[in-house]
Simulated assay, not measured.
Amino acid sequence: MKEDYYEILGVNKSSSDADIKKAYRKMAVKYHPDKNPDDKEAEEKFKKAAEAYEVLSNPEKKQRYDQFGHQAFEGGGGFGGGGMNMDDIFSQFGDIFGGAFGGGGGFGGFGGGGRRVVKGSNLRIRVNLTLEEVANGVEKKIKVKRKVQADGVTYKTCSTCNGAGQVTKIQNTILGRMQTSAPCHTCGGAGQILDKKPSDADAQGMIAKEEMVSVKIPAGVVDGMQLKVTGKGNAAPGDGIAGDLLVVIQEKEHATLKREGDNLHYDLYVSMPDAVLGASLEIDTVTGKVRIKVEPGVQSGKILRLRGKGIPSINGYGKGDLLVHVNVWTPKTLDKSQKDFFESMRSDEHFQPKPEKSDKSFFEKVKDMFS
């Protein structure tokens, strides 16, 4: 089981953004590869801290993590997926260290002394899931059109910054000579520029290519939830890293089952004879049809609870329930003999309403359903 992000950074859910950033900086400086060369344990802690900070520093991701835990980000590696990449960390969090490790805020020994690691753009795609797929989890094969480097494309060292990715300027000010560094405007900080490319490639040496991507979708996902598959977005020029594929979940409406969180609702219509005499009736569930017993004398509005027949919790806290709402169906048309029968029963004591204390009112049933 993955470690809790709050425990990794030594903070809690009520910690401020500043406290979370401070805790991450402290850990990252302590376990930075420059201070711990060839130390695999320190490198792993450095990656875990970056993964935790990437989620907790983002309000939207933090909210999803607080609600769904680690499963909110399953479906691929990378941040939130357990497959941390050093280039990812340095490109996204380099500014948090100030000048602690040289290179104008970069990382000594990584990224070429301030050279920026270029990352390709992300792609977003919607995936439609049936309620059965949501309940059981599913692996989807998705056709994605993404940009990749064309065959035969080559890059060369940027002549403006000589591959450093940054240019340094010295200015005379009233305080003396000031030295400043900024990303190279020619290569955008990558340290490389396009050298040769085939005719069908764009200005960055990229071509569009279709690819089948496999996405594992865990059980219990929610409509609108976003999963990330690291490295399956658009590729980056040169030796940059590819962007991510963002998979947005869209849940299809079921014909008979209605979802409410992890619980499901089913409207069961019972004939008057079945309501009076009792019956064994077939209903839908997310795992197939099952039979349930309707007791004799069942009242319209009765709720039958089938425990564990709902949707699995995305956090792994068991399954929801299936709530079967009984509706006694009153016939609208009767022949003469049927009408005569019910006329004869008007004054019969067995047909007179006699609610018991156990027969709850409509408002009590609604209250129980939501509690």
Rank of each mutant, 00 (worst) to 15 (best):
P331M: 09
V222F: 02
V286M: 10
Q171C: 10
G77H: 05
V248C: 13
E132N: 09
Y65P: 12
Q338I: 01
V117Y: 06
K216Y: 12
E74L: 07
I292H: 07
A28F: 04
M27S: 14
Y24H: 06
R177N: 09
I89S: 06
S358F: 09
T256I: 00
L304V: 11
P218F: 11
L131A: 00
S121Y: 06
H32D: 01
K365C: 03
V153N: 06
D321P: 05
K169D: 11
G10E: 13
K147F: 01
D274Q: 13
K2F: 10
G114P: 09
I20Q: 02
S199Y: 10
A201I: 05
K62P: 01
K22S: 14
V134H: 06
Q63F: 05
I283E: 05
G106W: 02
G120D: 08
N234S: 00
K228R: 14
E133M: 01
R126Q: 14
G76W: 03
F79L: 07
Q179A: 13
A242C: 04
L264F: 03
N234H: 11
Q63N: 12
F97G: 14
D321L: 09
G152N: 07
K119I: 12
G316M: 06
A182T: 13
A242G: 08
Q204W: 04
M345E: 03
G310K: 04
R116S: 12
Y317S: 14
G99Q: 01
G224F: 02
L194F: 12
V324L: 06
K252G: 10
D95N: 04
H185K: 14
T168I: 13
K339N: 12
K145I: 02
L129Q: 04
E295I: 03
S57A: 11
G308T: 09
S344P: 14
T180Y: 08
